[in-house]
Design a protein around this nucleic acid. Sequence first.
RNA 1: UCCUCGGUAGCUCAAUAGGUAGAGCGGCCGGCUGUUAACCGGUUGGUUGCAGGUUCGAGUCCUGCCCGAGGAGCCA
Length: 445
Amino acid sequence: MAKAVHIQDIAEYVGQEVTLQGWLYNRTDKGKLQFLQVRDGTGFIQCVVFQKEVPEEVFAATARLTQESSLIVTGVVRQDSRAPGVPGGYELSVSDLKVVQIADEYPIQPKEHGVDFLLDNRHLWIRSRKQWAVLRVRATVIRAIRDWLDDHGFINMDTPILTPAACEGTTTLFATDYFGEPAYLSQSGQLYNEANIYAFGRVYCFGPTFRAEKSKTRRHLTEFWMVEPEIAFCDLDQLMEIEEQFVSYIVQTCLRERKHELALLERDTRMLEKVEPPFPRISYDEALEILARIREETEDEELRELLQIEWGDDFGSPHETELTKRFEKPVFVYGYPTRAKAFYMEPWPGRPEVCKSVDLLAPEGYGEITGGSERISDPDLLVERLKEWGLPRQAFEWYIDLRRYGSVPHSGFGLGVERTVAWICGIDHLREAISFPRTLKRVYP
RNA sequence: UCCUCGGUAGCUCAAUAGGUAGAGCGGCCGGCUGUUAACCGGUUGGUUGCAGGUUCGAGUCCUGCCCGAGGAGCCA
């Protein structure tokens, strides 16, 4: 048998006979000539079967292939600009074909389908080109995340998924039974990472997090992946520098390594190419001024209503969308009102109503992709905050301890993987940025 | 939790004013040597989300329920 190769490497084998193992994606039967679109997980390629060039039984078997039948096909690689695929421009002149299995009638056709149907068939939908491309980009995003952090002195320190208490209220936590006691699925590894930095300096955790929010929007999943770096001896400005380098590296890596997939997704990459440090930084107060100006200038009554905001409120998605429209790059918004954010955030010097927090908003309407802050390092202030937020002190004793034994200024942030993938891919719903999405109304398949 | 929209063939949809449920795609049969979601001819395919009501007659009108989607709030 000829050498078994992957479609993604096909350009290296022009003129040679190779074997591909894969599945039939689609085909066109022209009578004595058949075009097979074959995918093997690494790409898509057109295989051309001429009646005259293959044994009779091979041609007959080819004619019986149904969509998604598994097969092993051998032929000579030819360069041909007419050939579709990923990467396009190459096709296989088939000399032999072995059927592994004739697939049953496949429910997903190469045409428009409804969301409900596709999600019910998510286990099959991931084979479709667009879904395949998005999930390949996702894998690259994840690798870029790890590479950048590992190369910049961060050590991977994963944090527990089963946790005893909330860092923000329990209404958004999934409860489980832990041998008769309640335990909750983690929403964040941050508090544990604050312990980890005192052992390792710079750390990150990376894993799934769970939010039982009743959010039914394109920007929400109940299970999503988050990377959370945490850094000792780091203030808010230094945090923003780290974030902009980190996010730029992720985007540039995808542009470099996932050209074909982004092209397949018809992603206009011009905006992504601009994603390089430094990113613009505006304060919460400046953001409010910009929003006020937009409200004055707009003719759109509905928009004016949506953009209504009082000092002290957090932004909703309409605010984020309008703000980011004014910038070509991701934009940092820092210095949020203390009461709109979590209990552990360091107050702004001289302005206790403001905290040293920062969100990074992606352009093109994609909104918040990271949220972070400098953390409170003074034990007395932390205790005071726990009291103000009505949190049980005994559950946080260990966390207060961190401020008693060598406390230092420290900061960290969380980056949502699916939001980042959705932004880079230019897709409009998070559910396509993970292989098996968990949403408010769906845990199947 | 609230607001909006939707549920008809395997899929995507249509069905005038309440009057015989239809088309394309897919499947199956046949034809075609350059197709790009091919094309051409034939054929197959229905508990109209569920329950009740009005009516001579309900996919269509009324009531209740179920399911899904988009958005708000909340958040990454």
